[in-house]
Design a protein around this nucleic acid. Structure first.
Lengths: 157, 157
DNA sequence: ATCAAAATCACCCGAAAGTATGAACGAGAA
DNA sequence: TTCTCGTTCATACTTTCGGGTGATTTTGAT
């Protein structure tokens, strides 16, 4: 169906339409200013259309493999039946202090910095400082990443 | 209303506008340098380049990845003998959509909204909307809590 | 063909998070 | 004792999040 087709590719259709309108506008300009050679705009239009198509084709061709390749990290399983124990070795290796670990634990429970501060009886700024150090030591930028990594290396349950 | 119209067909309008500007620029060049003889090839080249770029842009803008085969392997604290499987029952019960689950997964990897958007080929605002819905459905306030809860009820690994 | 849900995007605003820097203080170690 | 480290706090600034609202488009089901 024509209507169906147009509906489905509405955006594309609109682009085409605008292109057509533009070409008409060109015609009008041409007549208005009495430009000599009429064929140029037609050529330009054809070239434009052709190379737009080419660009689309190129893009599709070149970005094809990008959608499928999605690599992720190695899976590390841990038996849940065993009681959790903090990996002190990793803690030492990364130089993470006791206090920082506490912050990390509360952080992993979804607490805000404010709440963590209230829990540990320290100020918001202190929590921020701890957090910043944690991020630095774990080499991450966000708390979510920190929690992620801390769990992976066995700092928190 | 004019603003409304423009808003509605913003993309098309911008497209047309840029096209018009380009053509006007060409015209200007034409008049300025009076190079009627050997100018055609130059015009053709410019137009070809521009529209190739446009085509690529269009393609990138309009097409989205066909099959988003995303394999998310992460640290699992459950039974290591069993492979992770999304708890569809909970998903349905909470009314969490497929897309929202994707956002949730990327969120759990510590990605920022910006990064998630880049990964899913959508805008930051869209990610925010999804996130807001997720928080609402999971009844949480922060992303860390969302990840926490999603893991608990088996939405993500 | 129509209708509802899902997905998309935008804008505003305030809150929270994160960065950078500096500094005070106590406990141990050199 | 001097020096380092961990802890604490502050100020200022930038970025990101999250809430609220409204809108359009796509899609699937009836």
């Amino acid at each position: 169906m024509k209507t169906n087709f147009f509906y489905k590719y509405k955006t594309v259709g609109l682009y085409g339409l605008s292109l057509a309108i533009l070409l008409l506008l060109l015609r009008w300009l041409e007549l208005k200013f009495l430009i000599y050679e009429h064929s140029f705009e037609i050529y330009a239009g054809i070239i434009a259309l052709f190379f737009t198509g080419l660009g689309i084709w190129l893009s599709r061709k070149l970005t094809r493999p990008k959608t499928e390749t999605r690599i992720v990290e190695k899976t590390v399983y841990r038996d849940p039946s065993l009681p959790f124990e903090v990996n002190r070795k990793e803690m030492d290796a990364l130089g993470i202090s006791e206090r920082e670990l506490e912050v990390l634990q509360l952080m992993s429970q979804g607490m805000s910095n404010q709440e963590i501060g209230a829990n540990l009886f320290v100020s918001l700024n202190t929590v921020k400082t701890h957090a910043a150090r944690i991020f630095e030591k774990l080499d991450v930028q966000r708390r979510t990443q920190a929690v992620e990594k801390a769990k992976k290396i066995g700092l928190i349950a």
